[in-house]
Amino acid sequence: MEFFIGHYNYWVVIILMMVGLYTVISRGNLVKKIIGLNIFQVSVFFLYISLGTVEGGAAPIIAEGVKVYSNPLPHVLILTAIVVGVATTALALALVVRIKETYGTIEEDEIHNLDHSL
């Protein structure tokens, strides 16, 4: 039981990751697919930050009287990944806007039907 409580960050990460993956696979709506990708992305952020945790460690900012700090490297990677994630989401939404203008729909099946590509 203690094992399950001690690792709860990982369980949350895996649940979020699978929710995101399932949304990307099962939904035909392109906006819902982007939402699924974002949920998946957040789970990766959470996984990195969890891996950097040090037992009893403070935030990695040098201060008087603090001996143990968390690992700063995952924080750095995720700091830039969040901003890039926002930019790529905006690009994906821009593409969806153009698809809507061209095809008149954002459902994947209907786009395939219009293109005769399936």
Binding site: F3, Y10, I15, M17, M18, L21, I25, E55
Partner: peptide, 24 residues
């Protein structure tokens, strides 16, 4: 999709249970 996500989730669970939390 549900089968794939479930299987992958189970695999990740098996990996994650071997990771220590709090001592990277």
């Amino acid at each position: 999709g549900l089968l794939f996500a479930g299987g992958l989730g189970f695999m990740l669970l098996a990996i994650a249970s071997g990771l220590d939390f709090g001592s990277p």
